[in-house]
Amino acid sequence: MNDSGIIVDIQRFSIHDGPGIRTTVFLKGCPLNCKWCHNPEAIAYKPQLSFNQEKCLNCFACLSVCPTSTHYIKDNKHEINFSLCQLSGDCVPACPNEALSITGKINSVEQVIELILKDKDFYINSGGGVTISGGEPMTQFQFTKQILKACKDNSIHTTLDTCGHAPSEKYLEILPLVDLFLYDYKESDYDKHKEYTGVYNDLIQKNFNMLYGASAKIILRCPIVPGINDTDRHFEAICDLYKEYPKLVGIEIMPYHNIGLDKARKIGAEEKFISIDTTDKEKSRKWISTLHELGCTNIRLG
């Protein structure tokens, strides 16, 4: 399996995950369970059935082809018991309106690289490259490493979008292949970090220090979620980091949006996540000015 991995999606012309025009590869699998996750379909390590209720015609063509009882009818409406799905995939072509799909596809390194290379001229002219994101790309370590290696062999700039929660030695191993880290900084409080993300932040901080110490180029990415971590305490902590780590390439504030919820609904995982309104522009601008006032100047909205 080392030569292939599970991919949620590959986004070409990605312009918000690192500099320039990029191709972002979203890998499946994440050790965290952030309450605000915006890519919930990338958390599980395996492919999953995805159901877009808005598109369903309630024709029930899927029922007859499903080898299990995943699809069922309740009040004349198509419902799904996701836990029963064994990923036969038979229902996908049976649906006449593309309401069903399988999230997560097995791709070989070659397939990914072939696609990546198609836009190489755009990377060169824009100072862009490739970003590996997810999920957490470190969970598919060999696959990630091989993609990064192939990028470097083709002189393509690489960015790793990571939550920081992976064995330290793996980071050290991958470090020479990564030109830029987009490194998450989600919550400054030790216990709250566990509460919001499912893990403690000590390993994350350790890895951060290690990478910083090894002169890795890092942009710190801070998801800010209203009512959860938009606190003075957290903002102050971000500013402390800013002062303590002057060689950070930058800090990006990622205002919460609820797009993830729509995607969670499709995989039957809606109840695991918080449901609040998408941050309005005014609020996010206010956060930026708060951080400016606290002395944190090299900061922008991501």
């Binding site: 986004q11 990605s14 918000h16 915006h38 990622m254 205002p255 919460y256 949006h257 998408t278």
Partner: peptide, 8 residues
């Protein structure tokens, strides 16, 4: 393409 929160 539109910009939505932290991604396009």
């Amino acid at each position: 393409f539109v910009r939505v929160g932290g991604f396009s």
